[in-house]
């Protein structure tokens, strides 16, 4: 049941990333950290089976159903909160389990905003809806593409706690360019640079279902180390 991607990608004739061998930690969070434009989203899209603009040579192997959440919450503007959360069921023609949707909406703390349209929600609230939608999909493999990077520092930390709690037990790939985020959430941390993929020293184990404290000395030290790695 492993999820892996092996291969190399080109944009036109230019190498996008050198050969990589990426294996996701089953049942844990793998953070893919790297600067803008090195191909993090491309890797995530390849695993999701989505169209990319690059030429990829290699193989992606996994047989897990996927849920996706990105930086832009990607909410449907004409649907209210439960409508957005249950979108997948409607798109598949499944019965829509509104009770379950309501439970999840309460779980992400939006019970009192359920009637709102996305335009009337704040950025953080929108990401909560997207998280509830991702949970509603109930997939073993969850792909997160910088889901919190448009949020302010406090909201981001809160969302990291929430996501760590609610996505516990699933195989998660978190794409991020934010070293503190990787330091808080990664069970494994992989640094993607033009030269290829580097596995970073695994930090101390997380308490299951929680993010590491943002102010713990070892987390701050790891942040600094990751930052140095990104700059190298």
């Amino acid at each position: 049941m492993t999820v892996s991607l092996r291969g190399q990608a080109w944009v036109g004739d230019a190498v996008l990333f050198a050969p990589v061998d990426l294996v996701l930690e089953t049942g844990g969070w793998t953070c893919l950290l790297g600067p803008s434009g090195v191909g993090k989203s491309t890797i995530l899209r390849l695993i999701a089976g989505l169209e990319t603009g690059v030429r990829f040579q290699g193989q992606v192997s996994h047989d897990l159903p996927v849920a996706l959440m990105a930086q832009d919450a990607g909410l449907i503007p004409w649907l209210d909160v439960p409508g957005n959360v249950t979108l997948g069921a409607r798109l598949r023609g499944d019965a829509v389990d509104l009770d379950r949707a309501r439970d999840l909406i309460a779980l992400v703390g939006l019970a009192d905003r359920a009637d709102s349209l996305p335009a009337n929600l704040s950025g953080g609230q929108r990401q909560r809806v997207a998280l509830a939608r991702t949970l509603f999909e109930d997939r073993p493999l969850v792909l997160l593409d910088e889901p919190f990077s448009a949020l302010d520092a406090r909201t981001r930390a809160q969302m990291q706690d929430l996501a760590a709690r609610l996505l516990a037990g699933r195989t998660v790939l978190l794409v991020t360019h934010d070293p503190p985020e990787a330091a808080r959430l990664g069970d494994r941390i992989l640094l993607l640079r033009e030269t290829g993929l580097t596995e970073w020293n695994a930090p101390a184990a997380r308490i299951p279902g929680t993010a590491r404290p943002y102010d713990a000395p070892e987390v701050l030290a790891l942040q600094a180390e990751l930052m140095r790695g990104m700059m190298a």
């Binding site: 899209r45 989505l50 996706l68 990607g74 979108l87 997948g88 798109l91 598949r92």
Partner: peptide, 8 residues
């Protein structure tokens, strides 16, 4: 993209 991943 979302719809595709959702299996629509």
């Amino acid at each position: 993209d979302l719809a595709q991943v959702m299996g629509a």
